[in-house]
Nucleic acid binder design. Sequence first.
DNA 1: CTAGAAAATTAGGTAAGCTTAACTTCGGTA
DNA 2: TACCGAAGTTAAGCTTACCTAATTTTCTAG
Lengths: 232, 232
Amino acid sequence: MIRKDLTPAMEDYLKGAYLLRERGEDITVLALAEALKVTPPSVTGMVKRLAGLGLIEHTPYRLIELTPAGTAVALEIVRHHRLLELYLAEFLGMAWDEVHSEADRLEHHISEDLEERIAERLGQPAIDPHGDPIPARDLTLPERDLVRLSALRPGVQATIARVSNQEPGLLHYLGTLGMVPGAVVTFVEVAPYGNVVTVKVGAGKGAVHSIAGEVASRVLTMPTSDEVAAPH
Amino acid sequence: MIRKDLTPAMEDYLKGAYLLRERGEDITVLALAEALKVTPPSVTGMVKRLAGLGLIEHTPYRLIELTPAGTAVALEIVRHHRLLELYLAEFLGMAWDEVHSEADRLEHHISEDLEERIAERLGQPAIDPHGDPIPARDLTLPERDLVRLSALRPGVQATIARVSNQEPGLLHYLGTLGMVPGAVVTFVEVAPYGNVVTVKVGAGKGAVHSIAGEVASRVLTMPTSDEVAAPH
DNA sequence: CTAGAAAATTAGGTAAGCTTAACTTCGGTA
DNA sequence: TACCGAAGTTAAGCTTACCTAATTTTCTAG
Ligand SMILES: [Mn+2]
Ligand SMILES: [Mn+2]
Ligand SMILES: [Mn+2]
Ligand SMILES: [Mn+2]
């Protein structure tokens, strides 16, 4: 398996496909086009090229799938991305809402040697600033099962483990509320009308904040108590 | 002056042109082609495009020149390159013969924000691991006048200030001899035939090494004594 | 002052990666 | 079961950045 020399564009498509699957979504032409901010014909063309390289499996008009080789490339790029994010936050003081765009460019240009040096400085970390898992050197991933903040029952306490969204605006907003990975929150209530949930942030008599349901659903938590999620 | 959005290729041509001039050489199509490892027609084409952007001045079949705007772009990239080299050496333990190729790719992809954070961690440095001057934030350059090791007189003591060559092989070789920026050397003699010079490396009773004249001419020094250079 | 060689340019072509416009296919509803 | 809209593909074309082969210009040596 001496395949390398992929272009940044190819790497981005493979990573995009991988991240869709990570979120449990189907890998479709349209979903990829939206994720990469290109038009559908661009995706069709690139999918053909990547299929020719054995990195993607595709029959026209059907769903797209990554081959094991394609998954390996994607994991390699995801590892670069998340290591860079953590390094930039940890050693260069970048905010968690700034690291994504920087890492998105650099991920394609660091050598395997530099990747390893960065991982070493960070102590071979498993989690990035957003709580996203970092693939290990052998490309294996730690599994955790997390519960959406929006799916907790009133009264349940949980630790924020991951925010599965990279928009700087949203991340900055959550940061100002103290809702970052590691923070403890308690679910208070869901509004009877409209899609709003109220949570207490902090262990003791923390501040109470109401956030949109769409936001709460991007915040993944590890519940502390036993009665975990709300039914349905 | 809101011109930006140059491609990595464009930045490399501008940087290449700048580095030729830094070494006192003419900027010709052939020299650029060799520096960038492309063919002459590629240079002709790119020079036209850059001239169209006002970054290069060129009349067909004559010498190429950077405009002030082109020089500014080149200095910005050189700053990125040399800051990255120093950062990689200083904070990530890379050897001075490994940093160049890594920096050559990353220089095009770091944001101005990251550039500034790196410069800050390094204490706004003026010199990179090879002794090359780092353009300041305002793109000004410190001037030093240095003497080629090959041009010293026997008996003269000098401090190595810069090695103007990036080949990993040569750098590694000089490293094993202890001939790195900051090292003190004493010129011993030049061989009566062939192009070989002998130097003592180290302040006290240092080791004596003979190196090729072409190598010694890439090693730039700051003489300690007054009787500086050999005549002619 | 005029050959030739060296340097540079032009001509013609490829490949990646993107676009818009026009089409085909698929799958769910009436 | 036939239609219709959404999803996907094909067609045609653009830009960047390379290449090789052919041609033109310049400069130098005789
Ligand atoms: Mn990317
Ligand atoms: Mn992340
Ligand atoms: Mn470069
Ligand atoms: Mn350098």
